[in-house]
């Protein structure tokens, strides 16, 4: 079990993010705070230490504080996140355009909820799309949200009232919709759940924010021997660029586990679950790899049916 991380480890995590920009399989910098213990998504494993609400770790806050200033640096630690961002939109479009015709179509002007928005890479881009009505973006780290707010001021498009709203909140604090129809058309959780203490309870809280017919879209990294070798052995032992124990490989969630978890809750029937495996190829950027969800980074989208 990983204990709370020292600032030194966190500093190295940031370093990892810089160094990994050349590597396909490394997870990116976490945007939502990992807490003390690792629990898999599967219901057979649960954590006795899991608090009812995930709390914000002060050492993590200091880490994000340090990272904040470089969030929008195109060659900084968040470069891989920036490069991945267009794929997120392509995947969302793919999810929304392959809905079976029996499901009522969602409105043309979409409402987005971005959980763990960080500096706003995805939130800004979603708010710029012509088909977007509004984007609500939440993150528990105040410093990171300050960066997001400051960066938004650089684009007059994003200053249109109601277009983009940042909230310094965790998902637990977000006011639930008064009725299911008040939910969001698209709820996104990018590069977050691999760092979340208990993905199951976390996702459970997210569900209510998705409108029936809407999509929950996330991206993460598979827990397989390849990702274990790359992140734990190569990075930590061979290259030595990361201190041992930086990665909680056990926290990674597999696509099959997500399918099972959502299937049990009656989500994503009739082809309402989509996956896209991606890999970062140095010099070429992120590329889709059929079957990549089995061993590396992947996107997962699931539709709320009712």
């Amino acid at each position: 079990m990983a204990s709370s991380r020292s600032p030194r480890v966190l500093h190295n995590l940031q370093k990892l993010a810089v160094q990994t920009s050349r590597h396909p399989l490394f997870p990116r910098t976490p945007r939502v705070l990992p807490t003390s213990c690792a629990v898999r998504l599967s219901s057979t494993q649960s954590s006795p230490h899991q608090p009812p609400n995930s709390s914000v770790d002060p050492t993590e806050v200091s880490h994000f504080n340090a990272l904040a200033s470089s969030w929008w640096d195109p060659h900084g630690p968040s470069r891989l996140l920036h490069l991945m961002n267009p794929l997120r939109h392509e995947f969302i479009t793919r999810c929304r355009t392959t809905v079976p015709i029996t499901i009522p179509t969602t409105p043309s002007q979409l409402r987005y909820l971005d959980i763990g928005c960080g500096g706003g890479i995805f939130a800004e881009s979603a708010a710029r799309l012509p088909g977007t009505l509004s984007v609500t973006a939440i993150d528990p780290t105040p410093e990171v949200l300050k960066i997001a707010e400051a960066h938004r001021r650089r684009d007059p498009t994003l200053l249109v009232d109601g277009r983009l709203t940042y909230l310094n909140q965790s998902i637990e604090d977000l006011t639930p919709p008064t009725s299911p129809a008040e939910g969001y058309d698209v709820v996104t959780i990018f590069e977050v759940i691999e760092h979340v203490n208990a993905p199951g309870p976390f996702l459970e809280r997210v569900l209510q924010h998705v409108k029936p017919g809407g999509w929950l879209v996330l991206s993460t990294i598979a827990r397989t021997w390849t990702s274990w070798v790359v992140t734990n052995v190569v990075a930590e032992d061979v290259l030595g660029i990361v201190p041992k124990g930086t990665h909680d490989w056990e926290k990674y969630v597999n696509e099959t586990e997500l399918r099972e978890w959502f299937g049990k809750r009656g989500w994503g029937s009739n082809g309402g679950m989509k996956t896209m495996g991606v890999v970062y190829v140095p010099g070429l950027g992120w590329k889709e790899v059929p079957g990549g969800e089995g061993w590396g980074n992947y996107f997962f989208g699931v539709r709320r049916d009712s």
């Binding site: 195109p74 490069l83 961002n85 881009s125 977007t132």
Partner: peptide, 17 residues
């Protein structure tokens, strides 16, 4: 076009790369 379709700021260094 690609930047517009993916919501990027068309003047950003990354979008123009």
């Amino acid at each position: 076009s690609h930047a517009v379709q993916t919501g990027q700021d068309i003047g950003s260094v990354l979008a123009l790369e």
